[in-house]
Design a protein around this nucleic acid. Structure first.
Lengths: 251, 251
DNA sequence: TATAATTAACTATCCAGTTAATCAATGACT
DNA sequence: AGTCATTGATTAACTGGATAGTTAATTATA
């Protein structure tokens, strides 16, 4: 429709494939695997439902493809934050900020991964290995390496390397995970730009004082890293508390 | 069935009501609201399905009742850890341990609450307000109070009170949430008793050094609290990676 | 006998996946 | 170049099974 003149058949096909994938990412990330409706995906992609089965083998296959699609976009940034030209401690602080920002800008990825985690717990997770292979493992390795290096050089306290990871990721994930609940508790909206910015700051500062042997040094690093990494604008619309989007049976 | 002699009609009714509720808690916590099957609940409670609609208005109503049921069991412990006869810092460490142990022993509660959090994000959460009212708010208030008191007395660093909460809960929640993924990364199972015990220890020690102005003092507190609060045995079977439990359509 | 508890059987609907037919490039062969 | 069969892309309409919720009859108790 957009460019019709010399549209090779192949090109058009690739295009619709992409359209389906994008629609699938949207639907799956907001409704989960079992909550997503194939009809909805087809409609949202303006495509006949049978095409989902033509291009991807079925709902499962489409889900897997969506997961793969969304994972691919994530890795580079994460590894850039771990550039070895920074000191070990600074790499950790950068990674923490980067993680926060990624949740902010790539909600779909985060949503899919969280759903996948609770899903695996009850059986049947084929997508988690994908996350693990493409994103988690390379990151984890570099993080542990940074911690070891930081402890060795005396820059960081002697902490369990895993604890560092749980502190960084845990606090960030939990901030967004608990936001709906916190909305009930707080006098402001945790998704407001100001609230996000404050949290981001508090988080890095906390890690600075917690991880560095010299707390003052940690504070300095936190300050510097914050100055170097401004908060990005949220990628998609803030999470909508909109009701059931017209679907009758959410049970 | 258990005591048949003078079983008042009323008693038997209450009994079956309870049976249904317990079955519902099991089913909902392992499969989520939409994943749970009313037939499965009825069968597991050894009761005709129509009774679910007789006692509770429907699936939604049953879900709400299950949430209420499971929340009731949680609060006392949590508040006991915040006994004001302990110093502010110690209360925080105790709360952190208590939270860890609660996740360990009351998986059903945790599972339901997490599911509820991701659900609310996409609309339609009636159960979260229950969690909030009965569990979250009272706890949050006391925690913030403890932080303020600790900072005032000079025992604790000047941290954002919310940051403390995110650190405590976030790390714990994330540990269990990420366990399936970590199983792929680690040479041991994060649900092994030994792994759990080590994590629990590392977590409190980290908080000790992170929160207290005097790190040595924090370490002492951490040590003492660990000695006073032994790790309980996990309440239910470790999370089963069992596949789809025979249900055909998990999509 | 009236009322509460319980059941078997049924209905309605939703929804993943299929089928068979149509449409449109492509390129092979005049 | 023009034609047409082949193959890939796309569709409308359907199927079957799963499952939330209902109903009307039955049992047991007070």
């Amino acid at each position: 429709m957009t460019s019709q003149a010399p549209t090779r058949k192949h090109d058009r096909a690739d295009q619709t494939r992409k359209k389906i994938l994008r629609a699938a990412v949207r639907e799956f990330s907001t409704h989960g695997l079992s909550g997503a409706r194939t009809d909805a995906i087809a409609k949202s992609a303006k495509v006949n439902k049978a095409l989902l089965y033509y291009y991807f083998k079925g709902k499962q296959g489409l889900y897997a493809a969506a997961v793969e699609e969304v994972s691919a976009e994530v890795v580079q940034n994460a590894l850039a934050a771990l550039d070895p030209s920074f000191s070990a401690g600074e790499r950790l602080l950068r990674s923490a900020l980067n993680h926060f920002d990624r949740i902010l800008t790539q909600r779909e990825f985060q949503s899919l991964m969280q759903q996948e985690m609770v899903r695996l717990r009850q059986g049947s997770g084929e997508a988690l290995p994908v996350f693990f292979r493409t994103v988690f493992r390379p990151l984890l390795e570099k993080l542990q390496q940074a911690v070891a290096e930081g402890i060795g050089s005396g820059e960081l306290c002697e902490v369990d390397p895993l604890q560092v990871m749980y502190s960084i990721f845990g606090a960030n994930v939990f901030y967004f995970l608990s936001a709906p609940m916190m909305q009930l508790a707080l006098p402001f909206n945790p998704f407001d730009n100001e609230a996000l910015s404050l949290r981001r700051k508090a988080m890095v500062e906390f890690l600075g004082t917690a991880l560095f042997t010299d707390r003052a040094n940690g504070a300095v690093h936190a300050h510097r890293v914050l100055a170097h990494m401004p908060m990005p604008k949220p990628g998609i619309a803030p999470p909508s508390i909109t009701g059931l989007r017209g679907r009758r049976n959410a049970l």
